Simulated assay, not measured.
Amino acid sequence: MKKLIKWNGKLMLRDWKTRLLLIGFFVFLGSFSLLYRQQNVTLPEVQLRSEYSDAHQIFRMIPDSHFEGEVGQEVQLRLGRNSTLIGLNRYILSQREGNTIDGWEEVVSDYLNNGREMAENNLFLHEATEFESYELLQSVYLPSVAETQQELAFYNALEDYGLDIEWNPYASSQILEQQLELFITTILFIVIALLAGDHFTKEQMKNYSVTQGIPIPIKRQWRIRSSLLWAMTWGVALIGLLCSYLISLVFETTGSLNYPSDIYINQTVSYIPLWQYALLLLGMGMIVSYLFLLIITGLSWMIRNVYLTLFVTAGLVMFYTIWQFFTPVTGWQPSFYTNIVGVVTGSSAAQYQLPGIEFWRLPLIGVGVWLMLEGVFHYIFSFIPTQTLGLKRRESK
C-alpha cells in the first residue's frame, strides 16, 4: 500500500495540469492580502456617518405632533440620544486610538458603553407600539430585534476579551477572516473540481496501473486518488493562507486573532475568537472537500468527460439553493452544509426558517454520506473490469 501511494503521488505531481493548478492556487491564496488591499472598502467611520445621517432624517419624517405626550417625548429623547451617541462613536473611530480618547473620556465616553446604550434604546423603541409613527420607525430606522440583541452580544464579547473596536478593515486579522470565508465558500470547490475532474479517467484510459501490477482494485485507486488530492489541496491551501497573513502583517495593522466572530449555536448567535472561528471553518471545509473529492473522482471514471463532471459538481455544490423554491423539512438535509459560512453564521437557518441548521451536525452527516458513497461506488465499480483493454504486466523469465 505504501508503495502504491508513493507511486500515485509521483504520477499525479508529474502531471503538468496538476502542477499548474496547485501553483496557481498557491499564488492566489498567498497574494490575497495584497489583492484585497487594492479594493475600496468602506471604513467603519464612514458607515457610522451614514447612520448619523439616517438618525437625523427620521426626525424630518415624523410629524412634530407625534412627539407629544409621554410616549412621544420618550421616543424623541431616545432618538436624539442615539444621534448623539453615533456622533461620539464616529469621532472615536476617526481618532484610531481605541475605545476611548485619552483625556476626553468624560466627554465622549467609551465606544462600547455608547454602543450598548444605542442598542438598549432601539430595544425600547421596538416596544413603543403606542407611538403614532411606530410603523415608520420599524420600516425605516430600526434594525430588527435579533440584530439589536446581536449587537449587544458583540459589545459584551469585545469587553470580555479586553479588545478595542477595529477601525481598520485592512487589518491582518480582518483580511484573514475575509479570505477564509471566500476560500471555504467558493475557491475550495473550484480547485478540487478542476484537480479531480479527469484524474481517475486518465488512470483508466492510459492504463497507468499496469506498470504496478494488475489487478489493483478500482475502489482502492479511488480512495488513494481522492486522499492524495485532498492532502495536496489542503497542504497548498494552508501554506498559502499562512503566507498571505504574514505578508499582510508587513503592510497593515495586525488586528487581533481574538476579535469576536459570530457563530450560530443552540439556535442563538454567540461570539467566539477569530482563531476559533477560523479553525471551525477549516475543519468543516476539510470534511466537505473530502466527500466532494470522493464524488468527483468516482464520477470522472463513470462519466469520462471532464466538462460534464465539472457541471455535475457545480450542481451538487449549489443544490442547497433549490430550497428557496421548495419547503425543506429538516435541518439534517446534507445539501445545506455545502454553504459552510451560512451554516456557521446562522444565515442559512434564518433564510430557510429551520433553526436546526447548525454546524455540529456536519460530522454526523459527513459520516452518513461517506458510508453511502462507499456503498454506491462499491456497487458501481463491481461492474467495471480492472484489467482494461487486455493489457497485462510483462513478466520477466
Rank of each mutant, 00 (worst) to 15 (best):
5 I>V: 15
11 L>Y: 07
14 R>K: 13
14 R>N: 14
17 K>V: 04
20 L>A: 15
22 L>T: 10
23 I>Y: 09
24 G>W: 09
27 V>R: 03
28 F>Q: 06
29 L>T: 02
31 S>Q: 02
31 S>M: 11
32 F>E: 02
34 L>D: 03
34 L>Q: 01
42 T>F: 05
43 L>R: 10
48 L>S: 06
49 R>E: 11
50 S>C: 00
52 Y>M: 13
59 F>R: 10
64 D>M: 12
66 H>A: 11
68 E>L: 08
75 V>M: 05
76 Q>C: 06
76 Q>D: 09
79 L>Q: 08
88 L>K: 11
95 Q>L: 11
97 E>F: 10
100 T>E: 15
105 E>T: 15
116 R>L: 10
119 A>M: 06
122 N>E: 10
124 F>G: 03
129 T>G: 13
130 E>F: 06
131 F>W: 01
132 E>N: 09
132 E>M: 04
138 Q>H: 09
147 E>N: 07
148 T>Y: 01
150 Q>Y: 00
151 E>V: 07
153 A>N: 08
156 N>T: 06
159 E>Q: 12
160 D>F: 14
160 D>Q: 14
166 E>V: 00
167 W>Q: 04
167 W>T: 10
168 N>M: 11
168 N>K: 05
169 P>Y: 02
173 S>C: 03
175 I>V: 05
178 Q>S: 08
178 Q>V: 03
179 Q>D: 02
180 L>A: 05
183 F>R: 02
183 F>V: 02
185 T>H: 13
187 I>Y: 15
189 F>P: 07
193 A>P: 04
194 L>C: 12
201 T>V: 05
212 Q>L: 12
216 I>E: 07
217 P>R: 05
222 W>H: 09
222 W>E: 09
222 W>Q: 02
228 L>D: 08
231 A>I: 13
231 A>Q: 11
232 M>F: 15
234 W>V: 04
235 G>F: 13
239 I>L: 14
242 L>K: 09
244 S>K: 04
245 Y>M: 04
253 T>M: 06
254 T>G: 07
255 G>Q: 00
257 L>M: 15
260 P>H: 07
262 D>A: 13
265 I>Y: 01
265 I>P: 00
268 T>Y: 00
270 S>D: 06
275 W>P: 03
277 Y>D: 02
278 A>T: 03
292 F>P: 01
296 I>L: 10
298 G>P: 11
298 G>Y: 08
300 S>Q: 04
304 R>V: 08
312 V>N: 08
313 T>D: 13
321 T>I: 09
322 I>M: 13
325 F>Q: 11
326 F>I: 13
326 F>R: 01
330 T>F: 10
330 T>R: 00
333 Q>T: 13
334 P>M: 15
337 Y>N: 12
340 I>P: 03
344 V>G: 06
346 G>Y: 03
361 R>H: 12
365 I>F: 01
376 V>I: 15
377 F>H: 09
378 H>Y: 11
381 F>R: 09
382 S>I: 04
383 F>S: 11
386 T>M: 13
388 T>H: 11
391 L>C: 05
